[in-house]
Design a protein around this nucleic acid. Structure first.
Length: 111
DNA sequence: GGTGTGACAATGG
DNA sequence: GCCATTGCCACAC
């Protein structure tokens, strides 16, 4: 098995994020079992664009609920628009009620 | 195979 | 509770 499987898992989890919900890199990392490889999760999303594999990365934010990677969408407004389309309030690149919209894959997907 | 980087997280002050 | 530093894992060069 190649370590690239890690990327596949990341993509799979992000795709399984329900509509109108958001999650954090750390939650995904823990779900994958790495736990401390939260950075790799974000990195995988960045590579996903390069590989052509699109995933709702706008639903994935850091633990602060901030849209750190909005710039990677091409246009900063793109990520914000997508979130607004999901009934998610985004103010100043920050998800409002992020704590309420937080979706933990480890509990919902029940690994 | 070692070094550097990265859309982070946890801990300490 | 916020700011600064450290640790961490995976991938590219």
């Amino acid at each position: 098995m190649k370590n690239k499987d890690f990327f596949e898992k990341v993509y799979a989890v992000v795709r399984q994020i329900p509509h109108g919900r958001v999650t954090t890199y750390g939650a995904i990392a823990r779900y994958l079992g790495s736990g401390k490889s939260a950075r790799v999760v974000g990195w995988a999303l960045n590579q996903s664009f390069h590989t052509g594999t699109f995933i709702p990365a706008h639903r994935v934010v850091n633990r602060k609920g901030m849209l750190t990677g909005k710039h990677y969408f091409g246009f900063e407004d793109t990520m914000k628009q997508l979130l607004e389309n999901e009934d998610i309030e985004v103010i100043n690149d920050q998800v409002v009620r992020f704590r309420e919209l937080f979706w933990d894959p480890a509990e919902n997907l029940n690994k």
